Measured scan of single mutants.
Amino acid sequence: TTLHFDLDGKKLQYTGVSEEIARLVEELKRRGVDLKEIVRILEELLK
């Protein structure tokens, strides 16, 4: 799965993300978590 974000005018793309992580990101968005925080979490998970 590939995730795309537009953060402060920067286009971020994460490829090869598992379905689980993609679902987690969608859930965080639904809960109103700040996009910067979501990206920070995502980068930690993908290390």
Rank of each mutant, 00 (worst) to 15 (best):
Q13Y: 10
E19Q: 12
T1N: 11
I21V: 15
R31T: 11
E43V: 05
L45K: 11
V39F: 03
G9H: 03
G32P: 05
R40K: 15
E37I: 07
K47H: 12
V33M: 14
E27P: 00
G32F: 07
G9W: 02
V17K: 01
G9P: 01
T2C: 05
E19G: 12
V39C: 03
L28M: 14
H4T: 15
D34L: 08
K10D: 12
R31K: 15
L28P: 00
V33P: 02
E37Q: 09
I38L: 08
R31M: 12
I21D: 10
K47G: 12
G16E: 08
E44D: 13
E37L: 07
E19L: 09
D34A: 12
E26H: 09
T15N: 13
A22K: 07
K11P: 12
T15C: 05
K29F: 14
L12K: 04
R23P: 02
I21N: 11
L35E: 13
L42Y: 01
E37P: 01
L42S: 00
L7D: 05
G16K: 06
R40S: 12
L24V: 11
K36Y: 09
K10R: 08
F5Y: 03
L7H: 05
E26D: 13
L3D: 02
E37V: 07
K36H: 14
R40A: 12
H4W: 14
R23T: 15
G9E: 06
Y14E: 00
I41A: 09
I41F: 08
L3K: 00
L45D: 04
L46R: 03
E27R: 07
L24M: 13
R23M: 13
E20I: 05
K29H: 14
L28V: 03
A22C: 11
E44R: 06
I21W: 07
E26F: 10
L3H: 02
V39W: 02
R23Q: 14
S18D: 06
V17I: 09
Y14W: 06
F5N: 01
E19S: 08
F5R: 00
K29M: 14
K11M: 11
D8R: 00
G16V: 05
Y14F: 12
T2V: 09
A22P: 02
I41Q: 15
K47N: 11
S18P: 12
L28Q: 06
D34W: 05
V17E: 01
I38E: 00
E44I: 10
I21G: 06
R23V: 12
E27A: 08
G32S: 06
V33W: 09
V25R: 00
L35N: 10
L3W: 01
E26M: 10
L42M: 07
K47S: 11
L28N: 03
V25Q: 01
E44C: 12
Q13K: 13
E37M: 07
E19H: 14
D8Y: 03
